[in-house]
């Protein structure tokens, strides 16, 4: 968790790097708000231009909340080791690292998924890059 937080912090420090991580990532997500959650997959939408998956996350009191995560499109996932209908299925327990949406709801952009049954980690979305929208406008001074 500490390294995750550090990663998020580093991403924030380097926010001016001109990586187009996600079209308008900064409009929807906040690169300064990293999040790591463990839960049970309830749905996978294997679709373009992004895939979405949903997990039930239980808090310390046992209360369950459903979280939505966004990630790469299937074409990209297919090239980095994912298989539709096999790699992530409803019922699987996973841990997801990503960045929260700006509206504060149970919604985030995913970067990496760890699968509880195998311990395997796979990238699921791009780095935050200019995650907060960038500190420098793309205009020559």
């Amino acid at each position: 968790m500490k390294s995750r937080l550090l990663m998020g912090f580093t991403a924030a420090l380097l926010a001016a790097v001109p990586v187009l991580a996600h079209h308008s990532f900064g409009a929807e997500y906040d690169g300064n708000k990293p999040v790591t959650l463990t839960g049970v997959v309830t749905e996978v939408q294997w679709t373009n231009p992004h895939f979405y998956f949903f997990i039930d996350v239980k808090d310390a009191q046992g209360k369950v909340a459903n979280w939505k995560f966004e990630g790469y499109p299937p074409t990209v996932l297919n090239r980095i080791g994912w298989k539709r209908g096999e790699t992530m299925k409803p019922g699987d327990t996973i841990t997801v690292f990503g960045w929260r949406a700006r509206d504060g709801s149970n919604w985030a952009h995913s970067r990496e998924v760890t699968f509880a049954n195998t311990g395997k980690k796979l990238q699921s979305g791009p780095p935050a890059g200019n995650g907060d929208g960038g500190n420098t406008p793309p205009v020559a001074p």
């Binding site: 308008s24 409009a27 929807e28 679709t47 373009n48 231009p49 992004h50 979405y52 297919n78 509206d103």
Partner: peptide, 18 residues
């Protein structure tokens, strides 16, 4: 591979709301 962007593009609605 095939990449049909219109398939499930939730971004415009999300952004409009945000």
């Amino acid at each position: 591979q095939e990449y049909v962007c219109e398939e499930n593009n939730q971004d415009p609605a999300q952004m409009e709301r945000l």
